[in-house]
């Protein structure tokens, strides 16, 4: 045996964990249905709160969409970690001879998948409801970049929040101020695409999203061990 390397590679273990979450969700559909219903309720609330008439809806669409995604995302992040914690499953993962980062990446990939699925359903619905075309390649790229950044930090922070007494309250309080750059950049980039702004006004926002994603995936990778290892 060579040294103390985990028997399962980081990638294999990551895939196994993401597969496990997706399979369980395909069964129960608890998390996705909750996220979706919540997302629709948020849009409904915005419709009346902001009086989304044809004149204003163009300019606020990206803001409404992103706040919806972020709220629904928080719901999913909380739930996804709670299932690991409540039945002691996190211990089960930690007992396995795998790299600790695999737990982070596995959960993050599953969380990202949930968020993208919700977004994929909300998009056509929103398009139909408000008669705006959201299917622009640039906008889809923005959605992916924004979701990656949000999930990267969210998965890390939810694995801490879940251990606290006040966990359901704690996640948004920890996450929102740190994820503010994602929200701002994603809203502005999306608004840029929807409003048909020239690329040079959108590119800086995409860059910001990209930088955010890289920084926080790296940081999460470096510190995750300290969260789960006692």
């Amino acid at each position: 045996m060579s040294g103390d390397a985990p028997i399962t590679s980081l990638w294999q273990a990551t895939r196994a964990i993401a597969w496990k979450d997706l399979t369980a969700e395909r069964r129960s559909r608890e998390l996705l249905s909750a996220m979706l219903v919540f997302a629709l309720l948020v849009i409904l609330a915005f419709n009346f709160a902001l009086d989304l008439d044809p004149k204003t809806r163009g300019s606020v669409a990206s803001g409404v969409l992103w706040v919806t995604f972020i709220f629904a995302g928080t719901l999913g992040l909380n739930r996804s970690m709670a299932t690991e914690k409540d039945r002691g499953c996190l211990d089960g993962l930690l007992l396995a001879p795998i790299d600790r980062s695999a737990i982070y990446f596995g959960k993050a990939i599953a969380n990202l998948a949930f968020m993208l699925i919700v977004e994929a359903i909300v998009f056509p619905l929103y398009s139909v409801l408000y008669n705006v075309n959201l299917f622009l390649p640039g906008l889809l790229l923005t959605v992916v970049l924004g979701s990656v950044g949000y999930v990267a930090v969210g998965t890390l922070l939810s694995s801490m929040a879940v251990q606290a007494r006040t966990r359901d309250m704690l996640l948004p309080i920890l996450l929102f101020p740190v994820a503010l750059p994602v929200l701002i950049a994603a809203v502005k980039a999306s608004a840029g695409y929807l409003g048909g702004l020239p690329m040079e006004e959108i590119i800086p926002w995409l860059n910001l999203l990209g930088v955010y994603d890289v920084i926080f995936i790296t940081v999460a990778f470096m510190v995750f061990d300290f969260i789960v290892e006692e």
Binding site: V153, L157, M160, L180, P181, L208, F216, V223, F226, I227
Partner: peptide, 23 residues
Amino acid sequence: RYAAVYAIVGFLSVPLTFLSIRM
């Protein structure tokens, strides 16, 4: 441990927050 992680993550987000608000 958690506080240390959050102190680091929080601090790293500050320049990006500033940048995004300025933009």
